[in-house]
Amino acid sequence: MISIQDVSKTFSTHEKQVEALKHCSLDINNGEIFGVIGYSGAGKSTLVRIINQLERQTSGHVFIDGVDISSLSKKDLMKKRMKIGMIFQHFNLLWSRTVKDNIALPLEIAKVPKDKRQEKVKNLIQLVGLEGRENAFPSELSGGQKQRVGIARALANDPTILLCDEATSALDPETTESILDLLTKINHELGITIVLITHQMEVVQKICHRIAVMSEGEIVETGTAKTIFEHPQHPVTKRFVKDISHTGNIERIDQELKTLYPDGVILRLTFDESISDKPILANIIRQTDLPISIVNSHLTHSIAGTLGVMYIHVPEKTTKLDQFIELLVTERVKVEVV
């Protein structure tokens, strides 16, 4: 278990002092995927670096499995760090080393004999799915492949904890998905505790068991993914949940409706604020006499303002439907076929 107790961190420069962390307390259980979410500058990078003491706290304690790691000697701390893997937003691979030599670096640091190193590297390459790329240099890899190397490297010394510092922020959505799948697999198969910090709500929503929300150096909310998503308390959390309901939810609803209504046509109608107070739909239904049923509707808030989204189901494709869509479009309603 990782136990962060009343940790504060102040950075002092000549001009001013910056409080990066203010009395943060957090317990992370063994074997869970724990997400820390916050906007940039919230202090989450500092928090994750406190765990492996890349940053030393100004006050407070960090216990890993009961050991106060800030009280460890330099030598013991280095040993402890070997058991805490870390991956980074910009991968931080050595360009001068090939994939397999990059993965071997932590093993060299831990003074693992050469034949054991080779065997270990081979297994890791298999685990992250990079077979055939062993002798490539990082410059020859895609972002997703680079992060796979980063993950393999972080796992080299069989850590019990894996720290992920914005590990998917530099990747496109599809690659992000595959990296998250890999992290879930690692958590599942190897039982490693994963601490993941991110500003992407989709990421924590997808894989985290529990979540902490950070704002201005404070942990403002902690809870299971479900409670945070369903009952956000703090304004920052609410903002995150709203952001996600706009993009993530739509995909989910699309899927749900498709399984519920395998036949016929499902349309997604989007109304913006300027037209949401007119009786557009009622008029058009009267004109076209189309038998529709409303299957889902909600409001979403985003930086673009409030949007009304409505899903309707039509049993079959007819000329009436075409006319219906045409009329909606002339009224400036966005119509999409799901």
Partner: peptide
């Protein structure tokens, strides 16, 4: 790249290891 130095610190490297295995080769 400062990131590679940070990464090797996180791996538990000593300063000498950072110099010989990371700084000079890079």
């Amino acid at each position: 790249d400062k990131g590679t130095i940070e990464a090797s610190k996180a791996m538990g490297a000593t300063n000498w290891q950072i110099i010989t295995k990371v700084l000079l080769p890079e």
